[in-house]
Design a protein around this nucleic acid. Structure first.
Length: 211
DNA sequence: CTTACGATTCCC
DNA sequence: GGAATCGTAAGG
């Protein structure tokens, strides 16, 4: 197994939109139950700190949002109805931008991930982590992981460069499931990837050519 | 304390 | 299309 190359402060200390796009293709690592779960980041959304009414940061510094105001590269996790959502804090201190991780392509331990899903058995691997609540379920992420530093190999979660680089284009679309600033194109997905959420209606937008 | 409200998911 | 579900934050 190749060694893990962490994403560090200089990666996260940039504009939220840039961090969001560049997180695509990176590998999310989760150490739990003696396993090292790997998931390729295939879908994200940017929540800005300036003029973004949809961002939780508009509430200011509260108990829930305080981690957004600290250093970048930490996990901002919140509860939504019966589910959890995982975000990565971007931008320098006191700039509360963050990136919502909306979908992962699960790379190993597929049976373990399936067992972590509550409802009936899911046989399609594509449906294991194609949504912010789903990936937290299958990767066993909840409020206990709030604030974890994703820039340390000692953490139970961190983000690294992919072991094998892959080329892909990026599709830019409107964000999903919000009412405020619903027209902002701040959702980024790996084009042609079958592990993303959404549907034919939602997954339309501009193609950003890479490579 | 009470109430309104979701960055969701699953079922019909 | 609609229900389930519960912590958060604001207001009395």
């Amino acid at each position: 197994m190749p060694r893990d190359v962490l994403l560090l402060e200089e990666f996260y200390d940039r504009k939220t939109e840039e961090v969001a796009v560049d997180l695509l293709g990176k590998i999310f690592v989760r150490r739990v139950d003696g396993r090292k779960l790997l998931g390729r980041i295939v879908e994200v959304e940017a929540y800005l700190w300036e003029h973004d009414e949809a961002a939780h940061a508009v509430a200011g510094k509260t108990n829930r949002t305080q981690i957004l105001y600290g250093p970048s590269g930490h996990a901002y996790i919140f509860r939504l109805r019966a589910h959890h959502c995982l975000n990565v804090v971007a931008e320098p201190e006191n700039s509360p931008g963050c990136v919502l991780i909306r979908a992962l392509e699960p790379l190993n331990y597929h049976d373990y991930l399936k067992e972590n899903r509550r409802k009936r058995p899911h046989f399609r691997i594509e449906d294991l982590c194609n949504g912010p609540g789903k990936l937290c379920q299958s990767f066993k992420i909840n409020l206990d992981q709030y604030g974890i530093d994703l820039k340390s190999l000692e953490s139970e979660m961190y983000i690294i460069e992919p072991y094998d680089k892959i080329d892909f284009d990026v599709l830019i679309t409107k964000r999903i499931g919000i009412t405020k600033h619903a027209d902002w194109e701040q959702r980024y997905i790996i084009a042609e990837n079958s592990y993303v959420s959404g549907n034919k209606r939602t997954n339309v937008g501009q193609i950003l050519k890479r490579s």
